[in-house]
Nucleic acid binder design. Sequence first.
RNA 1: GAUCCCUUCGUCUAGCGGUUAGGACGACGCCCUUUCACGGCGUAAACACGGGUUCGAUUCCCGUAGGGAUCGCCA
Length: 473
Amino acid sequence: MPQSPAPVVTRFAPSPTGFLHIGGARTALFNWLFSRHHGGQFLLRIEDTDKERSTQAAIDAIIAGLDWLGLDHDGEIVFQSRRAARHAEVAHALLAAGNAYRCYASVEELAEMRERAKAEGKPIRYDGRWRDRDASDAPPDVAPVIRLRAPQDGETVIDDLVQGTVTIANSQLDDMVLLRSDGSPTYMLSVVVDDHDMGITHVIRGDDHLTNAFRQFHIYDLMGWDVPRFAHIPLIHGPDGAKLSKRHGALGVEAYRDMGYLPEALRNYLLRLGWGHGDDEIIPTEQAIEWFDLDGVGRSASRFDFAKLENLNGHYLRQADDQRLVSLVLPIVAGKLGRTPDADAAQRTLLAMPGLKERAKTLLELAEGALFLTEERPLAVDEKAKVLLDTPEAREILGHAYSGLKSVSDWTAESLDLTLRNMSEVEGIKFGKIAQPLRAALVGRTTSPGIFDVLAVLGRDESLARIADQINT
RNA sequence: GAUCCCUUCGUCUAGCGGUUAGGACGACGCCCUUUCACGGCGUAAACACGGGUUCGAUUCCCGUAGGGAUCGCCA
C-alpha cells in the first residue's frame, strides 16, 4: 500500500481589528505556499474574541484582501468567538487534572505587583501567589480566573523551523490566565485549542509570537496533545528600519490595489521579502509553489521597498493580458475624466495597450498614459507640449505632415511609417523634428507610444483633426 | 529592567571554513532610439566592532554595540 504523505495543515489567523495589512498578507502567503507546496490544507480562522475591537467591516476587508491576492483557503472559515465553550471546557479539564488553578488576585493587586517588580528592577511576571494556596483562603465575593500551572524548573525547547532551536528557562515563564473571571477564554488558550482541534501541523506566524510559543507549548503538553511545528517569520519594517506604521507600508492590501499594483506583483515582492531561492527574482506563483520551503526564510527583519515593488509591478504589467489591463484601467480613466469611456475609446485603449503597458509601472501610470485615447477635441495641451507646438517651424512641419498624411489611403502603422520617413527625407528634416510636434498635437503630451502606433490607433479622422486643431491656433 | 531573536552593498538577498564576496532593485554612465519606456553593456557600492577556535574565517564560539520582539483577565 502506498503510504499517504505526512499531511500538512496550515492556517492564517488574523484578528479582525483592521484591514489585511502587508505583514499579515505575507504571513498568509507563506502559509498558503507551504500548504500548496505539500499538497496540504490552508485554513482560515478569524480570531474575533475581542468583542470591543472586532468588526464585520474588518472581517470583510480581510477576506476581500485574501481574495484579491489569490490566496484561497480550504474549508469553512472558523470564527474563534463561536468556540468559547470548547475553550472553557479545556480550561476546566486542566483544572480538574490539577494542571491549572484558580487565582483570586484582583486586577488592582496584579497591577501593583507589576509596578513593584518594575520599580525594583525585577522581571515583570505573575508571582504565583495563588498557585499553591488552599481554596478555603478564597475571598467569598471575588470571581477567580483560571491560570495554567506551568512548570517552574527545567527549560522549554522549541525547534523552530525558521529560528532554529530556541531554549528558555521555565523560571522565565509565569502562570498565564486561561479563563477570565467572567469565564471567557483568553487568546493564549483559544489559539492552542483551535490549532489542535483544526489539526494544524505547522504554525507559521510573525516572530512577535515566538515568546508566546513557549507558554502555549505547555498547554499542549499538559493536555497530552501533539505540539505543531512552529515557524516564526521575521516582521517587516518600514523603509526607515522602524516598525511598520501607517506612515509607510502598514497599509491594507486594498491600498496597494488602489495604488495600481497587480496582485501577482505583490505576491512576488512579498515572497522575496525574507525568502530567497538563489539568484532568482522573478518567481511566478506556480514556480513559487514548487520552490517554497521554510529553510529559505531569513531570520532578520526586512524593510519594505516601494522601488522594488514598482519594478516588479512593471514586469508583471508587461506580461499581463491586454484585455485584462483594459478592464482594470478603464475605471481609472473614467475617474480621471469624470465620465465612462465609450466603446470606441475602449477599443482604442485595447489596440494601444501593447505600446502603453511598456511604459508604465503601475495601473495609475498606465491610465495616465491611456488618457489621450479617450479625451475629446480640442485636446488639452500640457506645458512641455505647448513649447514644442508654439513655434512657426513646428506649425510649418505640422502643415506638411497634415497634407502628407491626408493622402495616405492605407492608414496602418506600416504605411504611415513609410509616408513620414519619406517626408523627412524629401524635406530634409530630421525625423525627430517631425515626430515630436506631431506627438504633441496628437497626444497633448511629450511622451507616448511610438508615433505610428498613435496615429494608427487614433484613426485617420481623429488624427487629422487633432493636427488641424494645432495648426489653426 | 528581564528574557529571547537579529546584524553581507542605500534596499532585498546568495554564500552554509579556502570565492576577484554573486544577483536583483535603486543610483550613475554608455548603447539602442521619433518622445518616454523597454532592452543591452558597464561603473560605484557590503561581510557592525573586538576577541578567540583553526593552517585559514563573511561563514564556528564568546563578548560589545546597534536593532527588534515579548513580558495584560489585548490578540
